[in-house]
Amino acid sequence: MSWSLNEVESLAKRATRGVGYPWGVAEEAAMAVRWLSARDVDGAAALVQMLTQVDGKAFGYRSPEAGCEIWRASSGTLCPLLAGAALSDFASYFPEGGIETEAMWQPILMVPFAAALARNNGKPIAVLWGETTAITDGDVLSLQGPMEAVAEAVHIAPAALETATARKTNRAKTGPQDWVALMQLAHRTYAPASEESRMSGAGAGLCDND
């Protein structure tokens, strides 16, 4: 079974909100997962693993600390969404030698933000961690190496993109287990059913024989 990109985007947004991220970050997480899914990378699986790891802890401590040369989080492990957002926000200040970070959850989730940076600066960007290399010009993604739940360090730097063939798809292929896990997190954003809500919340009756 496959999912539409809108489905995966919508579920990613709600699940990210479900573990307590602000709506704006949840929207960007959703766009990141969609971007990866459209390039045949299971971004939803990476997201659900990351969210499960950080669930229950305040998100602010996973943000890059201001003013550090090497990006790090006070909690010890960076959130790829918050680090990604900062990477994209500071695009105009991106140093020629690139940026180094300390440990990060699911660095693959940072790649769509690097793509936004690449589009903005008009130059391909590489995101490197462990044995893995992800290079993007903003549209095409060249990805080699394994996915990792945590990287000890990540390097983001200008690069040359040699693979010109885009691998694109219209469907997300997230497995049923990950999908259900995301649905459970998303469910936290839904108000519990109550008779009062059912009767008054939608502003219409329950029966429509006219």
Partner: peptide, 23 residues
């Protein structure tokens, strides 16, 4: 504005009278 767990129906409620703000 909130979404109900009942088939994800979008609803509008009274913030000070219903337990909906966190949603």
């Amino acid at each position: 504005w909130y979404v109900s767990e009942e088939k994800l129906e979008p609803r509008l409620g009274e913030r000070f009278d219903e337990p909906i703000e966190e949603y």
